Amino acid sequence: MKKFFWFALIILLLLTFSDKEPIKPYRDAVVDQVVMMLPASWQADNQDLLTLQQELKALGETLGQSQRELLARIATDKTSVAQFRQRYCINREFDPVLFGEPLQKSCAIVEQYIHRLDGF
């Protein structure tokens, strides 16, 4: 029992303090695997939002740091996704950080998932 406690403590410490670059990709992979193993009834509310976040994150890998931060901020919740869609995809407002082809790609990704998110 004592060995299990120490093992669990080490894993939790690694997951907690692993926001540095060498460990972060592995931590993200572990978290994604744990989320995928959760029962569907637990995932139903946020699964589409999580999938949207993953696709925007994949798009952000080809972009700059400020564009990645903007995409992460967009996908934080359903309201911010809807606001982004309304402002930049429908009304075509200019965003100095995300414009051109990256904006078109992000709008296409948002359009795929907007109808699956609750209330939209």
Rank of each mutant, 00 (worst) to 15 (best):
L15A: 10
L15Q: 03
T16D: 00
S18F: 08
D19C: 12
D19M: 12
D19N: 15
K20M: 14
K20C: 14
K20W: 10
E21A: 14
P22W: 15
P22K: 12
P25S: 07
P25C: 01
R27E: 11
R27C: 01
R27Y: 08
A29G: 11
A29F: 10
A29S: 11
A29V: 07
V31T: 15
V34F: 13
V34S: 06
V35Y: 05
V35G: 07
M36V: 12
M37Q: 15
M37V: 15
L38K: 11
L38I: 09
P39G: 01
P39I: 04
P39M: 04
A40S: 15
S41N: 08
S41V: 09
S41K: 06
S41Q: 05
W42Y: 13
Q43G: 12
Q43K: 15
A44V: 10
D45P: 09
D45M: 14
D45H: 14
D45A: 08
D45Y: 15
D45Q: 14
N46V: 12
N46H: 11
Q47K: 13
L49T: 12
L49N: 11
L50Y: 02
L52H: 00
L52P: 02
Q54H: 14
Q54P: 11
E55G: 07
E55S: 04
L56H: 00
L56T: 04
K57S: 09
K57M: 00
A58Y: 08
L59Q: 08
G60F: 01
E61G: 11
E61Y: 10
E61A: 11
T62D: 15
T62H: 07
G64F: 01
Q65E: 07
S66V: 04
S66Y: 00
S66Q: 09
S66D: 10
Q67N: 02
Q67G: 02
Q67F: 02
E69C: 12
E69S: 02
E69H: 06
L70W: 07
R73K: 13
I74W: 04
I74G: 08
T76C: 06
D77C: 05
K78V: 04
K78G: 02
K78Q: 11
K78P: 01
T79K: 00
S80D: 06
S80E: 02
V81T: 01
V81R: 01
Q83E: 11
Q83R: 09
F84R: 00
R85P: 03
R87T: 12
C89L: 14
C89N: 11
C89G: 06
